[in-house]
Amino acid sequence: MKTKFLKTAAAVMAMVMCLGMTAFAAPSPSGSDFVVGGISRAVDADGNDISGMLEVTELPNEYADVAAQLRTAEGLRAAMGSDYNENMMVVDIVDVKIVGDASQVKFPVTITFQVNGVTVSTKGMILHYTGSEWEKIPTTMGEGTMTGTFSSLSPVAFVVDKTTVTGGTASPKTSAQSAAAVALLGLLAVTAACGMKKRSMER
Rank of each mutant, 00 (worst) to 15 (best):
L188M: 14
V156W: 03
L19C: 09
V165Y: 00
V66W: 02
L153G: 03
N48R: 13
D101M: 11
G100D: 04
Q69D: 15
S121C: 00
V118I: 12
M53P: 03
V190I: 10
I93G: 04
D65W: 08
K106I: 14
M89R: 06
D92P: 00
A79L: 11
V90W: 14
T140W: 06
M80P: 05
E202H: 11
M141T: 06
S121N: 12
D46K: 15
T164G: 01
M80Q: 11
V159D: 07
A102D: 13
K123F: 02
M125Y: 04
V120D: 08
M53F: 05
A23W: 15
S175V: 12
S103R: 06
C18A: 12
V105R: 02
A67M: 02
S40Q: 14
T191P: 00
G47T: 06
E58L: 03
S103T: 14
D46F: 11
A176L: 13
A25E: 07
E62S: 09
R203M: 15
C18N: 06
V118R: 01
D83Q: 12
S103C: 03
D101H: 04
L184P: 04
Q177A: 09
I39K: 05
A23F: 14
A10K: 08
C18G: 10
T140F: 03
A180R: 08
I111R: 15
P155C: 08
P172M: 05
K97D: 10
G142C: 04
L187R: 02
T3Y: 13
N48C: 10
R203S: 14
P138F: 04
V43Q: 10
T140D: 12
G195R: 13
G75S: 15
V36F: 10
G144C: 07
T130C: 15
V118N: 07
V91R: 01
P138T: 14
T163E: 15
L59G: 10
V182T: 06
G131R: 01
F158G: 08
G31Y: 00
D83E: 09
D46H: 09
A23E: 03
F5C: 08
D95A: 12
V160P: 08
I137P: 09
T72L: 05
T174W: 15
A23Q: 13
Q114V: 13
K162N: 04
